[in-house]
């Protein structure tokens, strides 16, 4: 499979309950580009990210993944090239940080060594043997971010990635995002606060 070069969202309308969201939203994101999705609470930012991740099917419009030689298989791309960082962080509170990290990184295509290196880079090495339930919100978010650097995938879907992070961690995460873009990655982030990197803004209304 060739690498993802372009994400294309074409005239997408989503539905939540009886309510239509997005109203035919179109944008695209090419390799090396970050797109910041902005909009009021309930406008459909999270739903859009989940639709790109393949959890929700649009009622109309298309979400396509394109490589150098044309359209890529959407399911395979999602399984192999897509990281989603959502509100719910997916960590099992009873397991240790190390167990959860190593699982998540292996599951998304990295290995245990990369997981521990990543934890070190994000300043989590002292927390590795604690149960997840002892971590603060910001620490838990950093655990999730390790996945992004330890298991390389081209497309990052980030839902309010900065919210629980302190100033230092935000700056650090900015550097991580810049490095990802420099390596040809694509970032689509739902945000209220501006991202610490330059990003094209796509505003959606409720």
């Amino acid at each position: 499979m060739t690498a993802l070069e372009r994400l294309e969202v074409a005239a997408v309308t989503l539905q939540r309950g009886a309510r239509a969201l997005l109203g035919g939203l179109s944008f695209d994101a090419v390799a090396g580009e970050a797109v910041a999705i902005t909009g009021a609470n309930g406008a459909g930012k999270t739903s859009l990210l989940r639709a790109i991740a393949g959890f929700t099917r649009p009622v109309s419009g298309q979400i396509r993944f394109l490589g150098a030689d044309g359209e890529l298989d959407a399911d395979a791309t999602r399984r192999e090239e897509c990281h989603l960082v959502g509100h719910a962080d997916g960590l099992a509170v009873g397991r240790t940080v190390r167990e959860e990290l190593v699982f998540a990184v292996r599951w998304t295509g990295g290995d245990a060594t990369a997981a521990i290196d990543g934890a070190r880079r994000l300043g989590l090495e002292r927390l590795l043997d604690l149960p997840v339930r002892h971590l603060s919100a910001g620490q838990r978010r950093r655990v999730v971010l390790v996945r992004l650097i330890a298991a390389p995938r081209r497309l990052w879907l980030l839902d309010e990635p900065l919210t629980p992070l302190d100033a230092d961690s935000r700056a650090h995460f900015g550097e991580i995002m810049s490095a990802h873009l420099a390596g040809g990655g694509v970032i689509v982030a739902a945000v209220h606060d501006p991202l610490p990197i330059s990003a094209r803004t796509v505003a959606i209304s409720g």
């Binding site: 399984r79 959502g86 509100h87 719910a88 099992a92 599951w107 295509g109």
Partner: peptide
């Protein structure tokens, strides 16, 4: 797993 978001994570795996 559904409530914690882990089902999202495993759904984007191999």
């Amino acid at each position: 797993d559904f409530e914690s978001g882990a089902l999202d994570l495993v759904n984007l795996g191999p």
